[in-house]
């Protein structure tokens, strides 16, 4: 029974939009479900980088007083896709969206010169050559930032 309750809570949490604008942090969306901050500023709309530069772009990003961001995994980026919408097919909490393809950190295992991407016009997922330029939306683990704050 307890198992069911936990499962039900999980399902509810997944259903209700648990992504919200982080209070007092501009250019950032707090994702409570995944425990991450999402970049949401001009950079997450206007960026166009090949995969290697996308990794560097996130690492160098300084946003809302936080440093060293990273590319989202495929699973993380897919969690903000909203398939009930189109052009863009993204959770409506995000304001700065390029209607195009975004990088994930997940390398395409059968061919490591490719990595997984999501096209936010529709939500279509594909493996792109890392030499291609795509948009970037970086993430930052909340746990990491609070650990830093406790020091």
């Amino acid at each position: 029974m307890k198992k069911y309750k936990i499962l039900l809570l999980f399902v509810l949490a997944a259903g209700i939009g648990s992504v919200a604008n982080a209070k007092g942090l501009s250019g950032v969306v707090l994702d409570k479900r995944s425990g991450i901050y999402w970049q949401d500023n001009m950079g997450s709309k206007k960026s166009s980088e090949d995969w290697d530069d996308a990794v560097v772009y996130c690492d160098k990003l300084e946003l809302a007083g936080m440093e060293h961001w990273r590319l989202p995994t495929f699973k993380e980026l897919f969690s903000i896709v909203d398939l009930k919408r189109i052009n863009p097919a993204i959770n409506p909490v995000f304001d700065f969206v390029e209607e195009g393809t975004y990088w994930t950190s997940t390398t395409f295992v059968p061919n490591v010169s490719r990595a997984w991407t999501i096209d936010f016009r529709t939500g279509k997922t594909f493996y792109s050559y890392k030499s291609t330029d795509h948009a970037v939306r970086c993430v930052k683990d909340v746990s990491q930032t609070s650990a830093k704050g406790n020091k």
Binding site: L83, A89, F108, T125, F126
Partner: peptide
Amino acid sequence: FAGDPKKEAWRLSMSYGEAEP
């Protein structure tokens, strides 16, 4: 598929995991 819900739906390839309408 929200772009044409009467005529299209999402399919997923179990080859590598890609999805498209």
